[in-house]
Simulated scan of single mutants.
Amino acid sequence: MREVDHIEQLVGKLLLLVTPLEDRRLHTDLHNFTHQLSCDRISYSAAALFHIDRSLLTSCIAAIAISIYLVILVEFGLPSLTTSVNNAYGVPNLSEISSYFVCIVMNMYFFVIYLFDIDSTLQGPQKTHTLLSLSLWTGLMVLRLVILAYSSEMVVQEASRTQRLVTKLQMLPVPASSGCQEELLLFEEQLARSPLHYSAAGFFALDLSLLKSFVAAVTTYLVILVQFQIPDTNKE
């Protein structure tokens, strides 16, 4: 391949030296030869599956690296990593979300009774300061909860996207001797058997559906607490 490129460069230099006025036929032959070299590039392939050149080495190295990565990920990384994360952070996530639930319910409860003067113990600037403080702390806890649920959901979606990409990679014409097809099939089976998911100590899943359940539960407890407070106010 390099010799062909070298010949093409030499012919190009000869075209600059030979003018049509000096030897029209030679100039025409050189021009046709250059055009032929440009149009009909010399290349070697293995049954038209891939080209035999320096890029083959790069493809082989990449295929070997992908195979090693998939073997390590399937045999050691993926199942144990998910289990380790759930075991390590399941109980802390459960306690954190539970504390957020209690704090948000209580903050919203006091916010409602102070805002609608169900409890008139606070008035003026003190009431405004209390409402702002309750809103700020509630917003921070809601933000932390949204980040936790959203990040877990994105990881699960990325795992699903990886499974679809592995399926597409299996359709590519990869040499059988590389072993990539077997590794990709093994990786796809592993993803199908052990779907990625995170939970809070097994009580509930950490995904975007958690936010819907959380909002419903907070609303229910808030309505119940406010209803208990209204009769006490009417009696007074």
Rank of each mutant, 00 (worst) to 15 (best):
E75T: 13
V112F: 14
P175M: 01
S152A: 14
I64C: 06
V105P: 06
K235F: 11
A65K: 10
I52V: 11
L94C: 07
F110A: 04
G179C: 01
L185N: 02
I61A: 05
V218N: 06
I52D: 01
R164K: 12
N107P: 05
I118N: 06
E236A: 05
S55R: 13
V4L: 12
M154E: 07
A48R: 15
E236I: 07
C180T: 05
T219F: 10
E75A: 14
I104L: 03
L222A: 02
G124E: 15
T83E: 14
V105T: 14
V156G: 00
L184S: 02
L15S: 04
G12V: 14
P125Y: 05
L206Y: 01
C39W: 09
L17Y: 14
L21Y: 06
H31D: 05
Y44I: 08
Y89A: 04
S38P: 00
N107I: 08
A65H: 12
N107W: 12
L145E: 03
V71E: 08
D23W: 03
N32Q: 10
L165H: 06
N93R: 02
T34V: 09
A216K: 12
Q36S: 04
L131W: 12
Q181W: 02
S38Y: 04
A63F: 08
I7M: 12
G179I: 05
T220I: 06
S98D: 13
H6W: 11
V18S: 08
H51K: 14
D117G: 03
L148E: 04
C60K: 14
F50L: 03
Q170F: 00
S80Q: 15
T82P: 05
T121Y: 13
R24D: 10
G77A: 08
G90V: 02
T130Y: 13
G77L: 07
V105Q: 13
L78Q: 10
Q227W: 09
L222R: 05
M106L: 15
T220K: 07
T162G: 05
Q123R: 15
I97K: 14
L143A: 06
L172M: 03
A201F: 06
S67Y: 13
D29I: 11
E3L: 14
L115R: 01
V174Y: 01
L49M: 13
T28E: 12
A62F: 15
T28F: 08
F110C: 09
I147L: 11
